[in-house]
Amino acid sequence: MQQTPPDAFRPAAADPVPTEVFADHVVIRPPNELGAKAARPAQVRDGGERAVVVRAEHALKLLSQEFDVWMDVEMERLEQARIDLAQTRSKPATEALYRSVHDLRGQAATLGFPLVGEIADGLCSLMERLGDLPPPPTVVDPHVEAIRAMVREQVRSRDNPVGVALVGHLAELREAVATRLAVK
């Protein structure tokens, strides 16, 4: 026997998408328009999905000629954010530094500097633990200096023992600061 669903779950009268109405939820099954538009049967000689990925990787490799310049731009942005935070200790300056470090966390590895990504990840995590509290210069400055030095000296991956040691030292520094500031 059909029952009337609660108003909150009643599909809109003009809504033609196939739906199934349950006690507390509605299941909506939109037709797969993207599949109808773009899916096609595999061909014997189309190279498979792997060939598509390889083409994209090649395109990214060509683009990588610009990555060092991009990193220089990111370094300028990071340094400016550090200076602004040191001068103002304001919330906007804290947010600007976070965005800069967060972007490095996400793209440094793609740009060829995975160790920089690790340092940025650590500083990001600390800032997230601190919330609105601006991180002290005693922790920001060593991180920014380490990142800039690694980019300048082309220290890219964990093959570099000095770089790895620096990453470890900064992790200890962050923990000490977090303990001192009593953040979770």
Partner: peptide, 8 residues
């Protein structure tokens, strides 16, 4: 519940 009340 996953029991349908109304099937449109």
């Amino acid at each position: 519940s996953d029991d349908a009340m109304v099937v449109d």
